[in-house]
């Protein structure tokens, strides 16, 4: 059977992050033909009769040809999309059971979205964090900004504990109105605290999307033999017989996911649970398709 080219294991063979992002986005766009994020930042509003002082480049020559009168195009205010990508680079994100770690998966997803946004001249900023902000790249819309972001993503290493709520707290003031905030993390943190912080962003009419990246082993716990489990963020460890604890582990995990999902739903936060073994194009397509449909609904409204 032919391998899926967007399978994380296949993608992991492409070491260059830019190539990886382009590969995904081009594939995705060729699949759906039209970007749901085509909203130009300059919107035509109405024609106005030319008066001295107006810029000649705004004269609508077609109208002049038809009516033999000078009209200039009048535009709405500039509305560029400002997107902040929060990427969790704590130790736990470095976990990988198969070809690609959660962090690599999240970084690739972040790079793909950056490429997509910048292609539409939107502003994209990047925040990588653990229990503190590791790196912050302010939002820019130039296409050359992509190189900066990809370079940062390529250089990031997972380490330390994660404290998403504290990091978000730092950006409450920095991020203005009507921005898109996308967070990539495994959210092994206090759900209530994270939701509480996100509510602050929502208050400022920011849109929030959470990509909850989890490894398939974390979701299914397929271990067999007695294993010495070690924490990836600190010195904690445990010797356990997986067979005896599997049922309780999965119960705890599902309860956590359910609680998280429920909280997001209640707070109108877009929540995406992503299995890091899932083909990335499918994830992106699903995401974009749902974004477009929700956008249409909003426009209709």
């Amino acid at each position: 059977m032919k391998a899926n080219p967007f399978d994380p294991i296949t993608l992991s063979k492409i070491s260059n992050m830019e190539l990886r992002a382009r590969y995904i986005v081009d594939g995705v766009l060729s699949g759906i033909h039209k970007s749901p994020y085509d909203g130009s930042s300059i919107e035509f509003l109405e024609h106005k009769e030319y008066s001295p002082g107006n810029e000649i480049k705004h004269i609508d020559w077609k109208v002049l040809a038809k009516t033999d009168k000078y009209y200039v195009k009048q535009f709405e205010e500039e509305t560029n999309l400002r997107c902040y990508l929060f990427l969790d680079a704590s130790g736990s994100m470095g976990y990988k059971s198969t070809g690609i770690s959660k962090f690599e998966y999240a970084a690739t997803l972040a790079a793909s979205l950056s490429y997509l946004f910048l292609k539409q001249s939107d502003l994209v900023g990047l925040v990588s964090f653990s229990d503190r902000v590791l790196h912050y790249t302010p939002p820019r819309s130039r296409i050359t900004h992509l190189h900066t972001l990809l370079k940062v993503l390529a250089e990031l290493k997972t380490a330390g504990k994660s404290d998403t709520s504290t990091v978000l707290n730092n950006f409450i003031e920095k991020i203005g109105h009507r921005s898109l905030i996308i967070i990539f993390s495994d959210f092994f943190d206090k759900v209530e605290k994270i939701i509480h912080r996100l509510q602050h962003f929502q208050f400022k009419k920011n849109e929030i999307i959470l990509f909850h990246i989890l490894d398939p082993y974390e979701l299914t716990f397929p271990f067999e033999s007695v294993t010495f489990f070690e924490s990836m963020e600190d010195e904690r460890h445990i010797l356990a017989d997986p067979k005896s604890i599997k049922r309780h582990y999965l119960s705890e995990m599902n309860s956590f996911l359910e609680q998280f999902k429920q909280s997001c739903f209640e707070n109108k936060i877009d929540y995406w649970l992503v299995d890091s073994s899932a083909p990335m194009d499918q994830v992106l397509i699903k995401f974009l398709v749902r974004r477009e449909s929700s956008r249409r609904l909003v426009n209709k409204a």
């Binding site: 736990s92 959660k102 092994f188 294993t227 010495f228 604890i245 705890e252 995990m253």
Partner: peptide
């Protein structure tokens, strides 16, 4: 001889175990 395995969701293990 127990297989050593770095595991991210160790909080859940500690909780359940």
């Amino acid at each position: 001889k127990a297989v050593s395995h770095k595991f991210a969701a160790i909080d859940f293990l500690l909780e359940t175990n």
